[in-house]
């Protein structure tokens, strides 16, 4: 079973499938990761594995982190991340063990977590998909404004304040996003590449965490069944 992987986005390109259809794919350099800590239910209350990724110069790291990696017999690593795994899987893993993209062989769908591209301070049209105001019919200088945000004493609640969770303008993007059940298009064990169908959250060179898909939506489940 695949524990999970840490990787970086290389970029997107296109490939043709067997029927000649054009498929957008994302190439991710995934791993090699190393087991830096194994957590067990007995000692930690839950079972998980912590993976470390990417070498870092010790002078750019901190002594506690260097020490933590050294316990697993590793050099200093930049990224550490925990993946929840079943106890039986965690029991088999050893400290310092290498985890590569080969562990994802035979897996059809994965979940990818990344940090989406920052969009800055965005208006409601971009951030929430509001329609804005008409171009004419007396609308002046307010074509992209959100319109009324509060009315009739906030719908007779008599608070007179805008309701909680009202969609307004503000900072957009640069948030942690998980794209679920992405189809695995192929892997290259030699080059540590994972090729997925579609786009993943984040910019090129952005960090992503990959795990086996937790559950599949209906259409993907049908695809998985067919293959």
């Amino acid at each position: 079973m695949a524990t999970g992987l840490i990787g970086r986005i290389i970029g997107m390109t296109r490939l043709y499938d067997k029927s000649g259809r054009n498929v957008p794919v994302t190439v991710i350099e995934a791993g090699p990761c190393f087991v830096s800590q194994v957590k067990a239910a007995q000692t930690d209350g839950y079972s998980a594995v912590q993976l470390a990724y990417e070498d870092v110069k010790p002078r750019n790291s901190t002594v506690p982190v260097i020490g933590h990696d050294a316990k697993a017999g590793l050099g200093a690593k930049r990224v550490h991340r925990e993946f929840r795994v079943a106890e039986s899987v965690a029991g088999e893993l050893e400290l310092g063990q290498q985890v590569t993209v080969a562990t994802f062989e035979g897996i059809g769908f994965v979940d990818v977590t990344g940090t989406s591209k920052g969009k800055g301070y965005a208006g409601t049209m971009k951030r929430w998909g509001h329609k804005g105001q008409p171009a004419s019919h007396g609308v002046e200088r307010k074509h992209r404004s959100p319109g009324s945000i509060c009315s009739h004493a906030s719908n007779r609640g008599f608070s007179g304040r805008p309701k909680k969770g009202l969609h307004m303008s503000g900072h957009m993007g640069d948030a942690r996003i998980t794209t679920r059940s992405m189809e695995v298009w192929g892997l290259d064990v030699k080059k540590n590449l994972l090729i997925l169908k579609g786009a993943v959250p984040g910019a090129c060179k952005g960090l992503v965490y990959i795990r086996e898909a937790k559950r599949l939506c209906k259409s993907k489940a049908r695809l998985a069944k067919a293959s």
């Binding site: 290389i10 970029g11 490939l15 350099e29």
Partner: peptide, 14 residues
Amino acid sequence: MSQQILEAVVKSQL
């Protein structure tokens, strides 16, 4: 480097 990796991925289909 990224560009080279991407080119290598699609090379077999060129």
